[in-house]
Amino acid sequence: MDFEQLLIYAKGGDQKAQEEILSMYKPLLVKNSMDRNVFDEDLYQELSATLLECIRKFRV
């Protein structure tokens, strides 16, 4: 499945598609969750939510 298709499914609420995208962008989220060499779990949760919101709002 190409990315466009994956994104469309994810926007439709398909949980597997959302998880797939989340795992694709996990390094980005993890890297941005580092607060001075310490992993901030709460920040990671917020950024995961941000990603899901991006999926929802992005116009294909």
Binding site: F3, E4, L7, L28, L29, S33, L47, T50, C54, F58
Partner: peptide, 22 residues
């Protein structure tokens, strides 16, 4: 281009969120 656009969108949103959070 679609994925690049999406990645840019996500990157910006994530950075802003991170800054506000910190």
């Amino acid at each position: 281009m679609l994925q690049i656009r999406f990645t840019a969108y996500v990157t910006t949103a994530v950075r802003n969120k991170r800054v506000n959070y910190l």
